[in-house]
């Protein structure tokens, strides 16, 4: 059981990470959701993970699962749910503004990209000039 849960968590983390690295916000949100599930599964495994019920009218600790991780997982599910909904709202706003939900580069990135583009243009122009000079010689 525990091994299965460990593999499930690993799978969720792996696919979630892959989706996070995409540029569309919708995929990123799904990725975050998967990673959140992964961490919740991990939380559940810490309550001895044998599939026992958490609340039972018995005093023997081997009869029931530790309820605390389940409470923690519940809290984290609620919080992640709320934030994800807000992120969807932001994504919708972005779609309304730009008809796209691609996460744009930040200001710094665009600044650097523009400088590099300028430099590339200069270099290619210089190369063309050199080429022209060489052709003239020929």
């Amino acid at each position: 059981m525990s091994v299965l849960l460990a593999f499930a968590a690993a799978f969720l983390f792996a696919t979630g990470t892959w989706l996070l690295l995409q540029r569309r916000l919708s995929r990123i949100i799904i990725g975050i959701g998967l990673i959140g599930h992964g961490s919740n599964v991990l939380l559940l495994t810490s309550s001895n993970g044998r599939g026992l019920p958490p609340i039972i009218d018995s005093a023997d600790p081997t009869d029931f699962a530790d309820p605390l991780p389940q409470a923690l997982a519940l809290t984290s599910i609620v919080i992640t749910f709320g934030v994800t909904v807000f992120l969807f709202a932001v994504g919708f706003r972005s779609w309304k503004l730009t008809h796209d939900d691609v996460v744009e580069d930040d200001v710094e990135d665009r600044f650097i990209a523009r400088r590099r583009a300028d430099r590339d243009v200069e270099e290619s122009e210089a190369a063309e000039r050199e080429h022209a000079v060489e052709e003239d010689r020929v």
Partner: peptide, 18 residues
């Protein structure tokens, strides 16, 4: 635009925390 990256980063940090 900046809110998107801020929320995504913070959310990743939060899941890492869990």
């Amino acid at each position: 635009r900046s809110g998107m990256s801020y929320i995504v980063i913070s959310l990743i940090a939060s899941t890492l925390f869990i």
